[in-house]
């Protein structure tokens, strides 16, 4: 069991860090685009204004946002309201956290289930986005169900951790 959780943790961490570097690189795309658009280096590059930057950075942003979700849950960095159940070892706290994670599971589960169906349909039909690049939807729209699937499994791992009596000193 513990081995399974550690694997889930590692996968979440990998994609979380990937997400971080996606954001990092978007910053450079945008800067490149501003420079090119404002004719600063037009004479060197001779390229047309780069419409693709806007679209590509949006697609990458969706991917990064949802790929990072599981990692943020694992690191317990999600915003929670800390007004009750402050003792991490009390039964009440464990029950509360379980309820909380159930809602996470419902949210993530629905997003995966319906997101996958939607994705499958447009993928089989070969649809693209209606935008400039006309990117295939199998690429753009898989971000939701892939990211939430990671979040779903990480939530399961967290539920089990709440009840794992051996590891009482959770941070």
């Amino acid at each position: 069991m513990t081995g399974l959780f550690l694997t889930i943790d590692r996968i979440s961490e990998f994609f979380g860090k990937l997400s971080a570097w996606i954001y990092f690189s978007i910053g450079f795309f945008i800067t490149y685009e501003i420079i090119v658009r404002n004719d600063i280096v037009r004479q060197f590059l001779g390229t047309a204004p780069t419409i693709w930057v806007d679209e590509l950075s949006r697609v990458l942003q969706v991917w990064a946002a949802y790929l990072g979700a599981a990692y943020v849950l694992k690191e317990q960095e999600m915003v929670t309201i800390d007004v009750a159940f402050k003792n991490p070892n009390s039964l009440a706290r464990r029950l509360a956290e379980t309820v909380a994670l159930m809602f996470m599971l419902v949210f993530a589960g629905v997003s995966v289930f319906f997101g996958f169906q939607l994705w499958l349909k447009s993928t089989l039909a070969g649809h693209t986005t209606d935008s400039f690049l006309g990117l295939p939807k199998w690429f753009t729209h898989s971000s939701v169900w892939v990211g939430f699937a990671l979040l779903f499994f990480q939530s399961l791992a967290q539920v089990c951790r709440v009840w794992n009596t051996k590891k009482i000193n959770r941070t």
Binding site: S122, H127, T128, T129, D130, K137
Partner: peptide, 26 residues
Amino acid sequence: DKQVPEAVGSGAVEAGSAFLGRFAGS
């Protein structure tokens, strides 16, 4: 606007208006 074709098509919402060009992806 750009989500309307999919939202109506999938039945998430019963009806709607969208710019015609929004259907160009399909």
